[in-house]
Amino acid sequence: MSQFIFLMNNFLRKQNFWFVFTPYFWLILFFFIPLALIFKISISVSEWGMPPYRDFIDFSDGGIKINSTLSNYAFIFSDSFYLRSFLNSLSLAFTSTLICLFIGYPIAFYVAKSKENIRNLLLILLIIPFWTSFLLRVYAWKVILQGSGIINVILMKLGFINEPISMLYNQYTVILGVVYTYLPFMILPLYGYLVKFDLNLINASNDLGAKPLKTFIRVILPLSLPGIIAGSMLVFIPVVGEFVIPELLGGSDKLYFGKIIWDEFFVNRDWPIASALAMSGILILVIPIIIFQLMFAKYNFKNE
C-alpha cells in the first residue's frame, strides 16, 4: 500500500512538473531570450551586412575582443527627434486614455446598473466591436473622414461648409482613432468592477447623508479605482507602442514611437538603434508599470 502511495505521489509530481515546466520553458525561450537579445543588440556596434551588427565577441584578430557600446543609447538620447517621438506617444496615450475614461465610465456605469436582461444585451453590444477587426475599425474612420466622406457630405448638405474640408492625417484624427478602437478595452474592465458593486453600499452612503454626487466621489469612485486602473493600463500601454493608427490616420505633423522603431528597423535597417529604442521603451515604460502593478496588488480590497 505504501509503495502504491509512493508511486502515485511520484506520478503526481511528474504531472506537476510538466504543468509548470512546459509553459515556463516556452516563455523563457520565446519571451525572455528574445528580450535579452534586444538588449544585446542594443549595445552592439552597427555595421553593414547580415546581420547588420558586429558580433558581440570577436575572435578574428587572434585575441578576444568584446564589441560593446553604449553609443546607440547616447545617440538616441542626444537626438531630440527620438525623444520627441517618445513624448508624442506618451502624450497621445495619456490624452486618449483620459478621453476613453471619460466616455467609457458613464457607459460602463449605466450598463452595469441596468436590469439583468437588458444588461446582457448591452454587454453583447459592447463586445461586438471588441471582436470586430481592429484594423477595419481604424479603416472605417478613414472612409468616414475622407474628403468625399459622409461627414463632409452631411456638413455640406446642411450648409455649414461649401467644399469638403480635410479632416484626415493629423494628430487629432489619430486621437479619434485611438479612442474609438481602444474604448472597449476601457469599458469592459470598468464594467467588470462596477457590475460586482454592492448596491447597498450606495444605499448606505445615501442613508448616512451623502447626496448622489458625494456618494459618487466618496464611495463609487474609490471602489471602482481598480477597474479604472485596469482599463487605463489596457489603453495606455499598447497606445504608447501603437503603429497602425498613426500610420493610417496620422499625418506628418507628429511622429510616434512605434513608427520610429518600425522605420529604424525596416527602412534604415539599423537594428542596434531599433533595439536601443525598444530597450529604452521597456526601461522607461514597462518596468515602472510592472512595479506599479506589483504595488497596486496590495491595494486590492477583499470584497466579501
Partner: peptide, 30 residues
C-alpha cells in the same frame, strides 16, 4: 520570475514583442 514571465507579455507593446521575436528567429537560424 515565473509570474513575471507569464504576465509581462500583457504590458509589452506589440512592436517591441514583434521586434524581439524577429531578432530571435534570425539569430536562432544563424
Amino acid at each position: 520570475f515565473f509570474i513575471f514571465l507569464s504576465s509581462s507579455p500583457l504590458v509589452m507593446p506589440e512592436i517591441i514583442l514583434g521586434l524581439s521575436l524577429l531578432l530571435f528567429f534570425i539569430s536562432s537560424n544563424h
